[in-house]
Structure formats: structure tokens, C-alpha cells
Design a protein around this nucleic acid. Structure first.
Length: 892
DNA sequence: CCAGCGCATGGTA
DNA sequence: GTACCATGCGCTG
């Protein structure tokens, strides 16, 4: 017991307030400090009679369901003396020891239920010495070391009850004492000793021969957390305050963590390594860990799953090398490109920053000392910017540290706190070396039994599916609970959410297909969507279901098996899977027969083939078995360019009308264009986009230094623009081509004026030959690139005339299934027309196909079901495939 | 011209 | 509709 002298202190007990000359340590405060009590109060506390003495008239007394003992529930002093029972009521710990199985406890009621409405210690809540560079102790907004002592950690899901175990529940809100410092704790000594000895207290109903509960057995594969409980003193030598995921944990022993600690570990599945905020709000109510430690104290939110710390055993080994130190993982973050960039600013998740970093009121913030895993000390500037009535917290000057850890975008930085030093520790983890799940970033603590990992710690598609399938619609409390608890959970974060947020789905295409759509899935963040177009080894295409089936071209001879899944008819091709065929232009010849025009890959001439012809992705004149006179590239082209261009608007009329009525269809057009771009790309045998063309720094889709209009334009569309009089290479090139185009359009307009009937059918405001449609394509002035990343409205402003109506087309009605038959590819046509145009003015390159770029247009249009196709599958067929024929329009 | 700061913007959940 | 946050740009030194 601590004893010291002072002339100003008074007893911490508000009912006492006796001046203290000497004081004794009482219960632990939320700040990590201890209540200083006078002898009398301390004695009462140590005897376990504090509440009986001082809180007898307070509300919140309950009787133990077993022995009837009165316990002051909700009081910080006796907070750990009872547990909540599933059936309601409480049980004192003594009884609980006898009857309670050591598995996660029932849901923990809202903290406010357990705490007095007012708490006198508000002023203490944020007092914690924290190492701030160049300054003395600063107020800390949470009790940083609260969970060091117990070694248990929990997490709260927004608005959900917290599942805790006996021990954890005690310390759930961080208002517990250290177990060893009071008689109350002494009373539990045996209890905890048993825990320490790795002998879970097993209730009679679930006792197994070897003393391992059934749930524990189930969790043998769980990377659940080893817990270290110790009768701890101020000179604790507990080396681990928390333990971490380990898939090697079996039979109650976490071998990994056991090596890190002198204490035997316990296979309790309920420990979670999630930082908690254990503050109280201004009303004195306990605030669940929210990361929202002040201000609004909404308390509903919590650190997002992707910020849950996933510290590795290696890190633990490093950090815990000092056996006197206790490591408390706080949070982690996947480095974005910005974080890892030269700017040297790490954007901190707001909740994390507010929960775990010092309170700062000025944007200038504070210098913060941070240790890395090697023990090297860094000083970062922790600050914020006002942002949308909020704040954006950043850690500045992290570049050297990031570099020293050899981290880059996609890697993970972890923040922990080293106690008792109170130092912030910044660790790093390569994205490819995530300890538990390399491909799955999440440490599915405690839940791995749901989807067993393979030897390499990776989840297989089916397993992920099973996860989703198993828990879809269910809710799981959080990560570290065993399977049997998941089934019981009725609120909280759904597993699918966890899955979505925690699986680094960009690692595998399969994972993408399943868990796509979560922002954090991308290591590159929201802006990474552009980069998602290209991964290292694949191209991701997002297309709608309709569009996908439109691209699929099954053999007309093959009759598919039709199955119905959720009202959708799915054509299943067992042997001859549909292929992504060659885009063609459907048309009607002079005899009124349906035909399609297809372009030869070699000579680029257009050939007429039957409407039902199924063409491979690569097609040349030599394969023209329908027109032997045109089976050689030397043969003249029947279709003139003018005829072709005239045909295009005719084709597009129907789809335009459709587009007018269906917004989705409108969106699909753009998506389809992008899709066709890539499809065409694949068709032309360019399976590998040059990485540099897509991963430029200035603009992800262009090479570094690219001077195309997109790259030289501010991303927001604002900023300096090229003047009308600008004579730079870009502008000159564009102007020249625009002039050429205008001339051609004028010429065509004159021609069409004679065809009044046609023009009447295509009113201007309903035409697909509008500017927007035309501007969906951009030929990069220098590279011959086709850029789909055009914002027509904005681009129009940038440089009038920069974008020209390269083609006049739209899409056939995919919903009618004729796209597949018609094989019409707007982009394919567009490309060729554009290409010809380029060749005409001599500024372009004919080989544009490998520079097709996709971007947000494609992304924005994924309003329907999506298929994500790896590039290497485009243009090829698989042994088995399904092609959905929508019996109705998907409306999702 | 460059680097960095601070803010604005837009995408995503 | 709102909050968060990734990122780009203008401004300044």
C-alpha cells in the first residue's frame, strides 16, 4: 500500500473528505491512478465493506441470486464483485466462482445502468501523465493504462451490449481496481489464480474431463487472445497487458503468447484487443469506448473495425522485450498513399485520435514522442485541421519513421501504448506479412473457427463465402468471441460487416467478389478506386449483370440448362461456356435481313456476317466463311466509313429511347463503354495494361508526366485552365482535331438535312448524338489514349472543343438480350472511328488499344449487379460458366 | 522552383 | 443526409 504524506489532500471518498496526512490506496480510478483514502475508508474498502458503509442509501443494490448477498451494483468500488446473469439478476463473485463457466458472459447492460448518475471524479478522468515531447505531463483524455492491469480488453459495438466474461466484465469500464490491491481482490485471489494457472473455472454443466470447456474446445482453432492475469503491484513485471491473436492456441495455452510472458496463459476467448475508452461523460455516465472521448460524447460510435489493433506477436516480442513494460494496443491504420507519401502526414482516424491522443484545442497541436519497434524515439506533430465542422487529425513528420520501417501504402501502422512509461509506440506491419491472415488482414480473433484458415493463414473463397453465408443477417458481438457466442448474439456488428471491413479483399479476386464495396477494402482508400482498375496482376471490371451477360456469347448450338435463382433465370453452360466474343455492329442489310458488321483485326476492314454468327474475340477476314469474296484482307470493304457512321445513330436510337426511360440504362451506357473498352482491349489481345499507364503519380491512369488534358487539369475541375489562345502542344493538337471533326460534322449535317425523315425521328434533346455521349470518349492528344474519365459538363468548360464527338452511338438494349446477339460494341466502334480520325490528322496512333483507361464513369455506373472480371479471363472461356438471363431488371 | 501548410473537395460508408 | 477521410491544390516561404 502506498503511503505518503501531504498537507492538502482529502480523502477521496466524497462521504468522508477527511484531510489526509497519510493516505492509503483505494480503488483504481479511470485515469489509472488510485483513490487516496483515509485509514478508515481504506480499511472499509479493503474489508469489502466500503459500499455497505458509505453507499448504503444509494440506489443500485441488488442481491446475489445464489446467496442473497447484497451488492452495490454499478458502484465503482464494488463493480467487480458481481457478474450479470443471463437470466437476469446478479451473482456475487464468490457464487460465480462456483457455478459460472468461464466463457464470455452475458451481455453487459449499458454502462449507465451501473454507474451513479453523478460521479465526483470527473475532474480526474482526463488526468494522465502522457509523454508529450517538450512538455510535461498533459491531460490525457482517457485512462491510458486502465486495461493494463487486468490484461483484458473488450470492445463495444455501437449500441450493442458488451459481452464480457467474469473477469472482463469487472474491468469493463475501466473503473476497477487492481486485483491485488484490496481485500476485495484478495477474495478473488483463488479465482484468479485458477485463471492464471490456466484452469478455467468450469461450470458443472459444461465441465469436461480435461477441464476444458466445450466452448474452449471449439475454440481450439481460435486465434483467441491469451490473457495474462496477475496479482499486480506497482512494480508489475507482467510483460503483456494484452495478448494477441494466435492460431496456435490450443487447450488453453497460447503458445505464442506464453513465450512472451512468464505467466501461463489462459484460453479465454473473450479477451479482445481493442482499445477502450472508459471515460465518463459530463453527466457522469460511463461512456463506452467510443473513441469519442469528449465533446459530444455521443458514445455510440466506436473505433471502426479496421482500426482495431492487430498487433503481431513479433511486435509484441519486440515491444515486450522490456519485461517491465506493458503494451496496450490502441489502434492501427492501413497506410494510404497520402500517408506514405512525401507529405509526411498521417491522417489519423478521428475517433482514434480523439480517443488515444492528447486533447488538443489548437490546430497547431502538440509534438508527440513516439517510439518505434526498435525503441527509437520519434517526435511527431499531432495536430488537426478544421474540416466540415469537424476535425481532421494528422500526425506530421512521419516520413522518416515510415521510411525507417520500410512501410508503404497498404502497410499497416499500429499504435500502442507502453506502460508504465506511457509512451506511444508506433509499429509497422507490411501488408504482405500480416501475421494471422496474410491475405486477410483481419485477425478474426476468436472467430476463425468459422472459416478455418489454410496453412498459410489465408482464407479460401468458399470459406469466406461460408462466413458470409453463415452469418449474413446475424450479428456477432465482436471479434473475440467464440462461435457459440456468435450464435447467441443478437445485436452489434454483423459478421458481414466485419468481413467486409477486415478482409483485405484486394488480395484476392475472390475476396473482392464477395466483400467488395467497403471503403477500407482498398489499401488505397476511397481515391484508390481509380487504382482499383488495375491491380498488379489483374484488371477489375465492374459491370452490371445485364452488361456481363451481354458480353457473354454462348455458342448458338449449345442449349443451356436454365436454373432459377431468386427469380433470375440462369443459363448454365456445362461444357461450352460462353465467351466474351467480338463486338460487332448489328444491322439490317438491303434485303431486310439481320446481319452484323465485324471488323477485321488485321486490316480493320468491316465485313458483313450473319446476325447469329458467333465470333471469337479475335477475328480476321480469313475467318469470314459467310462471304468468301471478302475472306481476304485484300478485298475491298463493302462498308464505307460514312455508311458505318450513319448506321451508328440508327442503331443507337432504340437504346437511347430506352435510356430516356431508364436511368440505369443511361448509366449503363457509360459503363458499357468502359466495359467494351476493356473487352475490346482483351479482344485485341492486350491482356496486360502497362502498369505505368495506370499508375502514374499525378493521375493514376496516366504515366507520370503525362500531359494529357486530364493530367494537366486539376482533379476537381477547378484551377487554372488552358486559355483559348493557349498554343501549347496539347491545345494545338486538340484544336486541330476539333477542327477536323467540326468540318466533318458540318459536312454530315448538310447531308442529313436532306434526310428530313430521319432527323425528325431523332430530335436533338433525345438524341444519343448529344455532346455528353460524344464526350464520353476522349482521345488523348499525345498518346492516342481513350479517356473515359471525362466529366462532360466540366470538361466542356475546360477547353471548348477539346472533346469532340468521336462517335455517335449508344448501346443496344442489353435488357432485351440483343446485345449479346448483336454484339455491338459502342466503344469498339468508337475506337475505330476515333482511330481513323487520328490517323487522318496524323496526330494519333493507331495502336491505342492498350491505352484504354477506365475510371470513375465506370465506377459510378455500377448500379446494378456487378461482375468483377479478371482481365485474364476476359476474352477467354472457362470450362463452366453461367450466364444470367434476367427475367426482370435487377433493381439493387 | 520546390516543399510544406492549410484548406477544399469529393468519394464512401 | 451526414460524417469521415483521402487527396489535391493554392498559397506561402
Amino acid at each position: 500500500m502506498l503511503s505518503s504524506s501531504s498537507s492538502t489532500k482529502v480523502c477521496f471518498n466524497s462521504n468522508c473528505k477527511e484531510p489526509l496526512e497519510k493516505w492509503r490506496r483505494g480503488w483504481r480510478l479511470r485515469t489509472g491512478e488510485y483513490a487516496d483514502l483515509c485509514d478508515r475508508c481504506a480499511s472499509a474498502y479493503e474489508d469489502g465493506k466500503f459500499c455497505e458503509t458509505f453507499h448504503l442509501k444509494a440506489s443500485g443494490w441488488s442481491c446475489c441470486n445464489s446467496c442473497g448477498k447484497h451488492i452495490h451494483c454499478g458502484c465503482i468500488v464494488s463493480f467487480h464483485m458481481f457478474i450479470l446473469l443471463d437470466a437476469g439478476g446478479i451473482e456475487c463473485l464468490t457464487c460465480a466462482k462456483k457455478s459460472y463457466i468461464l466463457t464470455p458472459n452475458p451481455a453487459w447492460p449499458p454502462p449507465s445502468q451501473f454507474l451513479p448518475s453523478q460521479h465526483r471524479n470527473l475532474k480526474d478522468l482526463s488526468m494522465k501523465s502522457w509523454r508529450i515531447a517538450g512538455s510535461g505531463p498533459l491531460p490525457w483524455r482517457k485512462a491510458p493504462s486502465f486495461f493494463n492491469d487486468s490484461g483484458f480488453q473488450f470492445e463495444l459495438q455501437p449500441g450493442m451490449p458488451v459481452e464480457v466474461d467474469v473477469v472482463h466484465g469487472i474491468d469493463r469500464f475501466g473503473i476497477s481496481e487492481r486485483f491485488s490491491i484490496s481485500s476485495l481482490e484478495k477474495k478473488q485471489e483463488n479465482f484468479f489464480e485458477r485463471l492464471i494457472d490456466g484452469k478455467p473455472i468450469v461450470g458443472p454443466s459444461e465441465t469436461l474431463e480435461d477441464g476444458i470447456s466445450a466452448s474452449n474446445r471449439e475454440e481450439q482453432h481460435n486465434p483467441s487472445v491469451a490473457s495474462v492475469v496477475k496479482n499486480e503491484s506497482s512494480t508489475s513485471n507482467v510483460s503483456l497487458a494484452s495478448a494477441f491473436s494466435s492460431k496456435h492456441e490450443t487447450n488453453g495455452l497460447n503458445h505464442d503468447c506464453a513465450s512472451l510472458s512468464q505467466w501461463p496463459t489462459l484460453s479465454t476467448p473473450m479477451v479482445k484487443h481493442v482499445p477502450r475508452y472508459n471515460g465518463m461523460n459530463s453527466a457522469g455516465e460511463a461512456v463506452a469506448h467510443t473513441g469519442k472521448a469528449r465533446g459530444d460524447c455521443r458514445g455510440r460510435n466506436q473505433l471502426l473495425p479496421w482500426h482495431w489493433p492487430q498487433i503481431t506477436n513479433e511486435e509484441l516480442l519486440q515491444l515486450s522485450s522490456n519485461s517491465n513494460s506493458v503494451l496496450t494496443p490502441l489502434f492501427e491504420k492501413i497506410l494510404t498513399a497520402s500517408d506514405a507519401g512525401r507529405i509526411g502526414r498521417l491522417v489519423l482516424p478521428k475517433k482514434c485520435a480523439e480517443a488515444y491522443f492528447p486533447l488538443i484545442s489548437q490546430p497547431e497541436g502538440l509534438p508527440l514522442e513516439v517510439l518505434d519497434l526498435k525503441g527509437k524515439e520519434w517526435v511527431f506533430q499531432f495536430r488537426f485541421w478544421p474540416n466540415n465542422n469537424s476535425r481532421m487529425y494528422v500526425l506530421e513528420g512521419i516520413t522518416p519513421c515510415i521510411q525507417s520501417m520500410q512501410l508503404q501504402a497498404g502497410d499497416v501502422v499500429t499504435f500502442s501504448r507502453l506502460e508504465p512509461e506511457g509512451k506511444l509506440v508506433m509499429g509497422g506491419r507490411k501488408a504482405s506479412t500480416t501475421p494471422s491472415n496474410q491475405g486477410v488482414e483481419a485477425t478474426l480473433t476468436g472467430n476463425d473457427a468459422l472459416a478455418p484458415e489454410d496453412d498459410k493463414g489465408k482464407y479460401k473463397l468458399g470459406e469466406i463465402n461460408s462466413i458470409n453465408g453463415l452469418t449474413k443477417g446475424n450479428s456477432v458481438p465482436a471479434r473475440s468471441f467464440p462461435v457459440n457466442q456468435i450464435a447467441k448474439a443478437d445485436s452489434g456488428t454483423t459478421w458481414s460487416e466485419i468481413c467486409k471491413s477486415r478482409f483485405k479483399v484486394n488480395e484476392t479476386l475472390e475476396a473482392k467478389a464477395i466483400c467488395h464495396g467497403k471503403r477500407k477494402n482498398s489499401i488505397l482508400g476511397s481515391k484508390g478506386k481509380r487504382l482499383r482498375v488495375e491491380n498488379e496482376d489483374m484488371i477489375e471490371l465492374k459491370i452490371t449483370w445485364n452488361q456481363a451477360q451481354g458480353l457473354m456469347r454462348p455458342s448458338p448450338k449449345i442449349v443451356p440448362t436454365v436454373i432459377v435463382v431468386e427469380d433470375f433465370e440462369i443459363e448454365e453452360f456445362e461444357q461450352h461456356a460462353p465467351i466474351i466474343g467480338r463486338p460487332t455492329i448489328p444491322a439490317i442489310d438491303h434485303f431486310g435481313e439481320k446481319i452484323q458488321w465485324v471488323q477485321c483485326d488485321d486490316c480493320l476492314k468491316w465485313r458483313k456476317v450473319p446476325a447469329n454468327a458467333l465470333l471469337p474475340s479475335r477475328w480476321t477476314c480469313s475467318e469470314n466463311v459467310w462471304g468468301l469474296d471478302r475472306s481476304l484482307c485484300l478485298a475491298a470493304e463493302k462498308l464505307s466509313t460514312e455508311e458505318l457512321e450513319d448506321m451508328i445513330p440508327t442503331i443507337s436510337k432504340d437504346s437511347c429511347k430506352k435510356k430516356k426511360n431508364e436511368k440505369q440504362e443511361s448509366d449503363s451506357v457509360v459503363a458499357m463503354e468502359g466495359l467494351n473498352a476493356l473487352a475490346n482491349l482483351a479482344i485485341q489481345g492486350e491482356e496486360d495494361l502497362p502498369a505505368s499507364s495506370l499508375s502514374g503519380l499525378r493521375h493514376p491512369r496516366h504515366k507520370l508526366g503525362c500531359t494529357c488534358i486530364v493530367c494537366i487539369q486539376p482533379p476537381s475541375g477547378k484551377g487554372p485552365r488552358h486559355a483559348q489562345t493557349c498554343d501549347c502542344v496539347v491545345c494545338k493538337s486538340l484544336k486541330r482535331r476539333c477542327k477536323t471533326l467540326r468540318d466533318r460534322r458540318e459536312k454530315k449535317q448538310l447531308e442529313k438535312e436532306a434526310e428530313t425523315t430521319y432527323t425528325e425521328q431523332v430530335p436533338d434533346n433525345d438524341s444519343c448524338v448529344d455532346d455528353a455521349s460524344e464526350r464520353n470518349f476522349l482521345v488523348s492528344p499525345l498518346k492516342g489514349q481513350i479517356d473515359l474519365n471525362i466529366q462532360p459538363e466540366r470538361d466542356e468548360e475546360v477547353s471548348p472543343g477539346l472533346y469532340f464527338g468521336a462517335i455517335k452511338c449508344s448501346l443496344p438494349d442489353a435488357t432485351e438480350g440483343n446485345f449479346r446477339q448483336q454484339g455491338y460494341s459502342s466503344l469498339g466502334v468508337g475506337i475505330n472511328v476515333v482511330d481513323k480520325q487520328i490517323q487522318e490528322d496524323g496526330t494519333g496512333q493507331s495502336n491505342f488499344s492498350n491505352r484504354v483507361t477506365l475510371d470513375s464513369h465506370l465506377e459510378k455506373t455500377d448500379v446494378d449487379h456487378h461482375l468483377i472480371l479478371p482481365m485474364d479471363t476476359v476474352g477467354s472461356s472457362s470450362s463452366t460458366a453461367t450466364r444470367g438471363t434476367l427475367s426482370r431488371q435487377c433493381n439493387h
